[in-house]
Design a protein around this nucleic acid. Sequence first.
DNA 1: CTAAATAATGAATCAATATTCATAGAGTGA
DNA 2: TCACTCTATGAATATTGATTCATTATTTAG
Lengths: 205, 205
Amino acid sequence: MSANSSPLSRKEREKEQHRKDIMDAAMRLFAEQGFHAVSMQEIAAEAEFATGTLYKFFPGKRELFRAIMLDVIADITSELRPVWDSAEDPLEIIFKFLHARRTAFRKRYEYIRLYNMVGNGFGSSGDEIVDGLIAERRQEVEKNLKKQFTRGVEQGLFKPVNVDVLARLFEDFCQTIIRSEASRGEFDDETVSSIKDLFLNGILA
Amino acid sequence: MSANSSPLSRKEREKEQHRKDIMDAAMRLFAEQGFHAVSMQEIAAEAEFATGTLYKFFPGKRELFRAIMLDVIADITSELRPVWDSAEDPLEIIFKFLHARRTAFRKRYEYIRLYNMVGNGFGSSGDEIVDGLIAERRQEVEKNLKKQFTRGVEQGLFKPVNVDVLARLFEDFCQTIIRSEASRGEFDDETVSSIKDLFLNGILA
DNA sequence: CTAAATAATGAATCAATATTCATAGAGTGA
DNA sequence: TCACTCTATGAATATTGATTCATTATTTAG
């Protein structure tokens, strides 16, 4: 009984924790081995629960996976959002965005495989809800990028290139960088600077 | 009996064809739905053979998948190789490479998902042989890129940036473009020019 | 035309694993 | 302590789908 709504009882908090434990364990395994390679029994073992218990929390494997994905997406999104009104200079915002994105993912390299897996439709889950959410989030990002690029062009800071192309390219570029860092090691600061410089001034001497 | 070695008998040619038919059908399905979502029975149906027949050609599903991947990799690689000594100017070679790569993939959009899937370790197959081959191919590409960038820098054509970084970045850049085109539609010529210009001269006005 | 060889068939088998459910335990209030 | 509720258990079941193989069809050789 106890509280009416917000302050959860100990029992409720415990249950919540169990739910999280299961999700954490599952995520570790999914991220490492992919959706299909992991069995519910393995997840149960990793989470130190019995198989059946998982079904007390999630209707099935697919839903468990989805819940994890939604969490990851929400986390990353909320971490990225403040960037957009963090500064005046469009260029600074764009770089901040790239930086924030790299940081967000670095904290969660294990997530990346999952995220990329689903985000590119290579999903082992084939889940439209997750795909839809990711698409949505991506649109939001691109909207913001476009805004900044537009401002930059208007201010005469950037070349008058097609802003849609720019936004699309930059979004994909960020993805590629992160993917690259995830699979082949992170760029050091110096390298990052020269990448930025290339982006600003191009490759020609 | 008939021929001794190279000129295959009709029967042999037919068998070869059947093998190809199976691989084609399987590829269509794999590319569309991923490794796990496709069953051998589906592949058989799509190829208009009985389930058992597939096993006359391939020891199992995994091997069938691998055979397809090896084909794709071999095709693309051989298409790309001639580029490297097609011109003098490093810049021209690099752009030719990007162009060839786009063309190679455009002919095979269905392959891309598969290729990317495996190449990034997100593989649904977890097949080390395929992963190994792709890594190898990627190394070859990077070796060649590095060579061209080195020449460019030596000639004073490019900025004196770390060549390793440059090569990796350009490789990633190509990937970005192709991935983007594959998932969101091809760039028109004008757009491609402005992308090239960005690469050469940067974004700043 | 007949026998032998080759190729194809697809229903039956088998293994893996997602899911269920009858049972056991732990906490709570009287 | 007893009855009741909530939670966890894990062996048993059900499903899915890869693989097998005895059988049938087709081709080739004599």
